[in-house]
Design a protein around this nucleic acid. Sequence first.
RNA 1: GACCCGUUAGUCAAGUGGUUAAGACACCAGCCUUUCACGCUGGUAUCGUGGGUUCAAAUCCCGCACGGGUCACCA
Length: 499
Amino acid sequence: MDQKVRVRYAPSPTGFLHIGNAQSALFNYLFARHFNGTMVLRIEDTDTKRNVASGEKSQRENLDWLGIDWDEGPDKPNPKYAPYRQSERNKKGIYHKYIQELLDKGIAYKDYTTEEELQEMRERQRANNEAPHYDGRWYGKSEEEQKAAEAKGLKPTIRFHFPKNHEYEWDDIARGHVSFNSDNLGGDFIIEKSDGMPTYNFAVVVDDHSMEITHVLRGADHISNTPKQMAIYEALGWEHPVFCHIPLIFNPKTRKKLSKRDKDTLQFINEYKKHGYLPEAIFNFIAFLGWSPVGEREIYSKDELIKVYDPKRMSKAPAYFDQKKLDWMNAQYIKKIDVDELAKRTMELVKEGETEEAKHLQSIPEDQCLDILKKTIHVHQRDVDKLLEVMAYAWDYYTVLDQHFNYDPIVANDDFANDDVLAVLKGLKDKLVNGGDDLDYSQAIKEVGKETGVKGRNLYFPLNLAFTGATSAPQIYEIMAIYPKETDIKLLDRMIDAF
RNA sequence: GACCCGUUAGUCAAGUGGUUAAGACACCAGCCUUUCACGCUGGUAUCGUGGGUUCAAAUCCCGCACGGGUCACCA
């Protein structure tokens, strides 16, 4: 890169950070960090109807959680480029200045068509099997006609007038050479709404130019917006940035763009957070949505990704969202992180209380809760996909005495001699009752096996059942260590009584 | 309907003229283990389709089929 790289992530604060937003933010972030450039956060809040009060905050918190930070933004203004919210920029007249310039040049014009008329126009065109487009009816109208419309109380929008049969083309980092003809772009488009706000297609151009953005990485759904924006760059005599259109994320079931209505897929980053996915895993996973490094490795830390990121390797085909793969990847990270750290993170989820599991655990005093989380993680770190499962297990263990176990699988099974089972249960109980606090459960079980002559599954299955209610379980001495010793004894008694 | 784009195993996904067509997930089998899980080993594709170019094509060209994106006073 021969010039200082400046990229931006520019969400509209209409809700939570969506996985598609996150993907776009992430690639901009990787690009900025890889090329030692500047990452800008800009808030595109020109749609006053759809803005959500906490939208911006949520975006920022979730980016933060993912480990994506920025160098400039509403909270870190660089005076040279501020402000970073389009609503504030509009108040300063930044957009209107250029709108006026285009108006003066005769490239833009006022349009008094009402929304109803527009809709009617589109319907008619569709009915005639035509591509929906604005027909240019207000282009070149006289001032008298405009005044007449004004007199009727109509507020105009301002439209950009396309040159005829003009080719817009660019070399897209991800897509290669792309071109569109001005005649296929849906007709003259609105650059200022009747409420005085600029539209997206106009505001991005003004902002990207005035913020000296060098590279625009955004979702592939913006491809057909690009020629419109290029037309504005051209009309204003500006150079356009380099574009890179990131493949969209698809739902493998519907084979369409991930929709917020797809119930089978978690859509928002905060949902991943509350289910106990780790930000490292999500970051890693999203980086592979539409991109891949050279080689076969798939587990990469953030720093490693920054190092190996190569925008030329962006894919063209859509990226299919594979939930199972994400779960696997999250499990990989869970295995890598140490128990104390995982327990700390799980504890944070408990405190936030966003899930049933978390709410349950909130009823336990904090130090005890942390303790049982640590013990649970110690046992389940190897087999759990997300921290939510840890919370569920921990609650099961904490409330084990309230649960009803069905001992039939052993009691009624001819493979297990009742005398043997009882001998084992009683033998172990003796060890617990007589042993000190430092009793080694693993050792104790082995001794019981020796003393009773019961071994293998005949020894372990009854114990699994006594302590977990199931015949298969993780290492049973580890489960025993999760419970207080009195609980272990009660669980043994309970099963002994059942015989 | 118009304009852009994509199409490699059950699911993702490398691969840009000559490869035994990577790897991952899932699945199946084996090993390990009291069981479960983890881990390890092995297994499954002639690259949508029809033509063409070439000594040689998943890789280049054309047609077709299928899928998608976009055509808002949303971003």
